[in-house]
Amino acid sequence: MCEEKYDEGEISDADIRVSRILHTLSEEYGSLQDSEIKKIFDMENVTVIATAEGDGAKVVGRQGEIVKKIADRIDNSIRVVEAAQDDMEVIKGLLSPAEVESINTVFAPEGQSKKIVVSEEYEGKINLSIEEFEEIIDEITGTNYKLSFE
């Protein structure tokens, strides 16, 4: 079944690699045994782990110890976000330490989208490019968001 999902592109090499690491770590950290990973996004400067709502802290671990071990093994920074009912929680998790100044609805000939405005002082400080952020947020929330630093 996993091989079929892999062949169809539903899961990636990053999903498999990080899941194997988490499985190994679950022997040491029992909290990982009942945590759910929704998707892994392996980006240039950061790997984003999207968990089910309420499972983010389990993957991070006390004082970030689990996430540090994962980061060491995959040689990339880690950001953990919870797939939540409220898109704003996911947005904040991806953009931290930046703060969202506003979210506006934009109407264009190709359709409606939402524009997230963040202070330009945070540009380059979130470990994700605009394109990477937009790809991840769309996949997690199902909503077309555009990111703007102003």
Rank of each mutant, 00 (worst) to 15 (best):
G54C: 03
I137H: 07
M43H: 03
Y122M: 10
S12E: 04
E10H: 14
L25M: 05
R73F: 09
G56A: 13
D34K: 11
I91Y: 02
V60L: 11
E36S: 11
V67D: 00
D13M: 03
R20M: 14
D34C: 04
I70M: 04
L95A: 06
V90D: 01
I16S: 02
A84N: 06
S102F: 08
V67S: 13
A14R: 01
E10Y: 15
I78S: 00
A50V: 02
I137R: 05
G30L: 12
S113E: 04
N127R: 11
E131N: 12
I91N: 03
T51I: 03
R17D: 06
S102N: 08
G56S: 08
G111D: 04
E139C: 09
S119I: 03
D55A: 12
V100P: 13
N76W: 08
V100Y: 10
I137S: 00
A14I: 10
K125Y: 11
R73K: 13
D87L: 08
D15E: 06
E123F: 03
S102W: 02
S113C: 06
V18I: 14
R79Y: 00
D42S: 11
G124M: 04
T24A: 12
F133W: 12
E101K: 15
L95G: 05
L32P: 04
V100W: 08
I78N: 09
N127I: 09
P97E: 10
V100K: 02
E99C: 14
E53L: 00
V48P: 05
F133Y: 05
K69E: 09
G61F: 02
E120L: 08
Y122A: 11
M43V: 05
F133R: 08
L94V: 10
Q112G: 09
L94T: 06
M88A: 10
A71P: 07
V59W: 08
M43Q: 12
V100G: 11
I16N: 01
E27M: 13
F41Q: 01
S113P: 08
V100D: 13
K114W: 08
S26L: 03
V48T: 08
V118Q: 02
V118F: 08
G111N: 02
D42Y: 00
D138R: 14
R79F: 01
P97Q: 02
I91H: 06
I116Q: 09
A71Q: 00
V117M: 03
E131F: 12
K69A: 10
I126R: 04
L128Q: 05
S96K: 12
K125D: 13
A71I: 07
R79S: 07
E131M: 14
I126H: 04
L22N: 07
R73S: 07
D87T: 05
E101L: 14
V60S: 02
K58W: 03
K125F: 13
S119F: 05
E53D: 07
E36V: 13
S12R: 03
E131A: 15
E82Y: 12
Q85G: 15
I70C: 00
S26Y: 04
G61H: 00
L22A: 07
E135N: 15
S96G: 06
K92D: 12
I66S: 02
K115G: 07
P97V: 09
M43A: 05
A50T: 01
V106W: 02
R20L: 15
T47E: 06
K68R: 15
E131V: 12
K58F: 00
V106T: 10
E132K: 07
E82C: 09
Q63R: 15
S35F: 05
L128E: 01
N45K: 14
N45G: 10
D13R: 07
L128T: 02
Q112A: 13
V118A: 05
